[in-house]
Design a protein around this nucleic acid. Structure first.
Lengths: 203, 203
DNA sequence: AAGCCAAGCTAATAGGATTAGCTTACTGGC
DNA sequence: GCCAGTAAGCTAATCCTATTAGCTTGGCTT
């Protein structure tokens, strides 16, 4: 009975492979154990639960995504930075659909390992904020603009990955159009009278 | 042993309740059976499988969403229509988070019941396209614009529902900013030279 | 060489999906 | 009003998966 030489990181590594291969929905402790050459319960020596393993996978994905976004925007600013950020984001998602999907798993406030994920997520928001700085938005409108840009990119990628674009048109071109919309839209935000004055006004 | 008087629709109705209450992830045949006052295997007389039930729920949600979008845009056009559409979309998602999440379940090409869902989805795209018509986009850019607008709205709602907005700022106001970005961005699409000429050009 | 600890293992429990085969409540035709 | 057929339920059984408990032992430390 030789040792398999597992470790928490090794287990997460196997989980990442499975998520890459079959999507996050089919990540299972039994499958991980199979790849590790170990009985399923043995994994509990390295991870707390299936849910914790899923969160660990999400953390890795968020970190990688943040790193890619950060790398893509160094030395750029304004529309150029936004476009580079958007492309890097989508490229990562297309290269690792399973990991990107894992990104959407809700964090557990009690899991200390999830603090890391929050940090990484916050950092990616900071990267986006930096990219938008050159648009000269009013201070209290920056958060709104970051949210809008994130929403657009994330939404596109999510729909693309989920097979939501069924028309035959070129998806790459659509994404460039989205970037056009985002950059132009955000630029126009600065021109207007500042932050939006009427949240949810009814007709 | 009295009859419970189930039917496929009744089962889907119970499933919708569960999805509303606990989210689509915790939809389980056992839970449905519990609410129906019936043994789990009995459900197979009405649905093909858990996956099929999930898809049925998704179909209902897509239909409702399409109806809401359609109702919100009658008699409006241009930016006004886009804003109304966006608000209706978000309102539905906030009112029925579970159903909205169910919307993202991938369809099964072999399930005839999923053809319906495709139809409804296509109709919602048509509603969006109609809303954008007044922007005077070039014909072959319309699909790109619809995708961009959908992406932005869907992305915002997804992030909001997933707890992705952690800053204290008002989310309603951010959504209005998103709508500003979308309407201004799409308007500017028409001004430019038509469809985007350089899909994915490398730096 | 003794011993400790962590990494594995097996056994057992608890849910959940799904299939097979039985029973029986309604429903239509006579 | 009776009778057969169908469809709605049921129980039993199988197969997965997660998770817990408690045992065993490899490999390093002293």
């Amino acid at each position: 009975m030789p040792r398999a030489g597992l470790s928490p990181d090794a287990v997460v590594g196997l989980a990442l492979q499975i998520v890459d291969d079959d999507g996050p929905g089919s990540l299972t402790l039994a499958k991980v154990a199979g790849r590790a050459g170990v009985a399923t319960p043995s994994l509990y020596k390295h991870v707390g639960s299936l849910a914790a393993l899923r969160r660990a996978v999400a953390t890795v994905a968020v970190r990688e995504l943040t790193a890619a976004a950060s790398a893509a925007t160094v030395g750029r600013s304004g529309p150029d930075a936004v476009r580079a950020l958007g492309r890097a984001w989508r490229d990562y998602a297309l290269a690792h659909p399973g990991r990107y999907a894992a990104t959407q798993i809700g964090p557990d406030p009690d899991d200390p390992a999830d603090a890391e994920r929050r940090e990484a997520a916050a950092e990616s928001v900071a990267v986006a904020a930096a990219a938008l700085r050159a648009f000269g938005l009013p201070d209290d409108g920056l958060v709104d603009a970051v949210r809008a840009a994130r929403s657009a990119i994330h939404g596109f990628v999510t729909l693309e990955l989920g097979g939501g674009f069924r028309m035959p048109q070129d998806v790459d071109r659509s994404f460039e159009t989205l970037l056009d919309m985002v950059t132009a839209g955000i630029a126009s935000l600065g021109d207007a009278a500042g932050p939006h004055p009427h949240p949810k006004e009814k007709a």
